[in-house]
Simulated assay, not measured.
Amino acid sequence: MAKTTSIQIGIPEKQRKHIADGLSQLLADTYTLYLTTHNFHWNVTGPQFNTLHTMFMGQYTELWNAVDPIAERIRSLGFFAPGSYAQFTKLTSLSDVPAKPPKAVTMIETLIKGHEKVAATARRIFAVASEANDQPTADLLTQRMDIHEKTAWMLRSLLES
């Protein structure tokens, strides 16, 4: 039987737990947005097909690459990362998309809202991480906020006439 050692990284367990809980929501939001974006990549139609198909691929690839660092930060703080659809459904702040794919404009609007919500989740956790002097989490969150805010801006730009 393996012996577990206590985690002594300069952040009390209660604060680590609070941060890990927030990161779990960020992980669920990120995974849900990944799934939505991949769904839209597969199912987009219309005059902007090629542009959106390619753009969505870049976005879902970035989201896929983001889930591992978030989960690993949760583990570094001493907690288990959620990893099931049931857990993600409970934790996410994003809504599921309808079974029938929406029109391209609605896809874009849905992704804008999703990226904005994920940025807001990261910003909320950032305050907790900053208070705990948790620079690795703060750095991760800063990167995530930047990416989601920039992606929302790029998607909004598609809707301007």
Rank of each mutant, 00 (worst) to 15 (best):
A81E: 07
H18I: 07
W42K: 02
M145H: 00
H115N: 14
L141Y: 00
D21F: 10
R16L: 05
F49Q: 09
L159C: 06
M154Q: 04
T89R: 15
H53Y: 11
G46F: 11
I125Y: 03
G78F: 07
P69Q: 09
P98M: 04
V105H: 05
N65S: 11
P47E: 12
T110V: 02
K14A: 15
I19C: 03
A129L: 08
R123K: 13
A120E: 15
I108F: 05
F126R: 06
N133M: 12
H41L: 06
G83S: 12
P12W: 08
R123Q: 11
V44K: 04
L140N: 03
S93Y: 03
N65F: 13
T4W: 11
E62N: 10
S157I: 05
T37I: 00
I11Y: 05
I112Y: 01
L159A: 10
A66K: 01
F126H: 13
A28F: 01
L33I: 07
G83F: 08
H148Q: 10
R73D: 08
S130E: 15
A122P: 08
T51H: 12
V67F: 10
W42V: 06
G78Q: 07
T4A: 10
W64G: 13
A120Y: 06
A122V: 09
M1L: 08
E160S: 09
E109I: 06
S6C: 00
V105Q: 14
G22A: 11
S76W: 04
G10E: 10
E13M: 10
A20W: 03
K3Q: 13
Y31Q: 14
L23S: 02
S76R: 11
E160V: 15
P12A: 12
A99N: 15
P98K: 13
A129N: 03
F40Q: 03
L27H: 09
Q25W: 00
L27I: 08
I70Y: 05
N39S: 09
A20G: 07
L159S: 06
R75L: 13
P82D: 02
V128Y: 09
G78Y: 07
K150Q: 12
A127C: 05
I112F: 00
F126L: 15
A28N: 04
K14H: 14
H38R: 14
A71T: 05
I147E: 00
H18P: 00
I74A: 10
G46H: 11
P82S: 12
R16T: 07
K17S: 13
L27R: 05
K90Y: 06
G78M: 08
K150H: 09
G78C: 06
N39A: 04
A152H: 07
W64D: 13
L155M: 12
L33E: 02
D134R: 09
S157M: 04
D139P: 01
D96T: 06
K3V: 14
N133A: 12
T151P: 02
K100F: 12
D29Y: 01
E62W: 00
I125P: 00
S93F: 00
L111I: 01
Q25A: 07
L35M: 08
A129G: 04
Q25C: 08
H41K: 08
T30V: 10
P69Y: 10
F80A: 12
L91G: 08
I125K: 02
G83Q: 09
Q8P: 04
A20I: 05
L27E: 02
